[in-house]
Design a protein around this nucleic acid. Structure first.
Lengths: 192, 192
DNA sequence: GTCTATATAAAGATAGAC
DNA sequence: GTCTATCTTTATATAGAC
């Protein structure tokens, strides 16, 4: 009962819109229109309403990110640069995951318990894997000591920031830009 | 007629709320309540309504950023590290300027002409000054060649990303973390 | 599974009294 | 400059026919 062709269309429309614009900027009618159904029909597939749908969708997005990021890390072997480039390739190919918006705009608009849960899950999914590859590289002696949580957050923010400019304004591919940023951070973490 | 004690309270409330949550997540009633007046009274001070108020407020915020950033750059003399640390100190002390949210959530909800204007102004105000200090440092031979626009965007995104975690979750001051990130980027831009 | 119709509430906005 | 009252539109949500 959790699946059907129509339900999947609804979930995909909701996912795209929520990821792009955030909770408050998207209406139930936007989602229904994008899924090609009347907004009343949407409640057949998402009986828990807009807020429940948002939470489900965020969990779904984050679950996909978890998979994509862990695949990228594994494919990078034991090479920090390859791991970070893999993570970057994944992230620039996905819709933005705007943690500042999630924290300051989306979360205050929903039930506090769900908000806390989503915030924790987002941090675990998006930041912690970067922390882990940095720790492993540090253990191998590839980079010098530092606040690896802070550095991981910085790398994540830089990669997400690449979504700021619309595609039309870009002179280079986002992946090229991401790789350059990673190379500079890596050189900075190795030097000294 | 552009000023009065009450109008100023309205502008300050609007500024705080819009900066924190963005356009769609803030209502006219939120702003009126924060300013301590009835929401009908708000239209006396902002006859152009919510959208006009948002545009005015964003211009005001960006104008303050322009001043704060240019002061910080000037105080940094000819030293890139001091300039970037000054910019960082300014930015972490202000409300977040979430360019991804501005681009993907706020701008699609307002008049396209205003949206384009605000987007350009935000880029000019927040990113271009960083590009300029990087170019000057490059001209002095302090850093090696690279896509300085990309690097400036990365530095900006990292600094803004420090607003993700609520104050209560922070183990170090945002300024400490910002300085560490800047030092790593600087080392990376000097090396090679 | 989808629709029409409807309910309810919230948001943006205006008129006019004080 | 601020309020009450009111209007209009939009948003979320439900009931029930098909």
């Amino acid at each position: 009962m959790t699946h059907s062709e129509a339900r999947e269309r609804v979930l995909q429309a909701a996912e795209r819109l929520f990821a792009e614009r955030g909770y408050t900027a998207v209406t139930i009618k936007d989602i229904a229109a994008a899924a090609g159904i009347h907004h009343a029909s949407l409640y057949h597939h998402a009986p828990q309403g807009k807020e429940g749908l948002f939470v489900e969708i965020m969990e779904r997005i984050l679950s996909r990110h978890q998979q994509g990021i862990s695949d990228a890390v594994r494919a990078g072997g034991d090479d920090l640069r390859a791991q970070l480039r893999g993570i970057a390739a994944w992230m620039v190919a996905q819709a933005p995951m705007d943690m500042v918006r999630l924290t300051h705009s989306d979360m205050p608009a929903i039930d506090p318990a769900s908000a806390r849960m989503l915030g924790d899950l987002a941090f675990e999914t998006m930041i912690v894997p970067i922390v882990r590859v940095l720790f492993a590289a540090r253990a191998r002696g590839e980079i010098v000591p530092g606040d690896l949580g802070n550095l991981a957050g910085g790398i994540f923010s830089m990669l997400q920031g690449l979504h700021t400019l619309p595609d039309a304004y870009l002179e280079r591919s986002r992946l090229d830009m991401a790789n350059e940023l990673i190379d500079v951070m890596l050189a900075g973490m190795k030097a000294r």
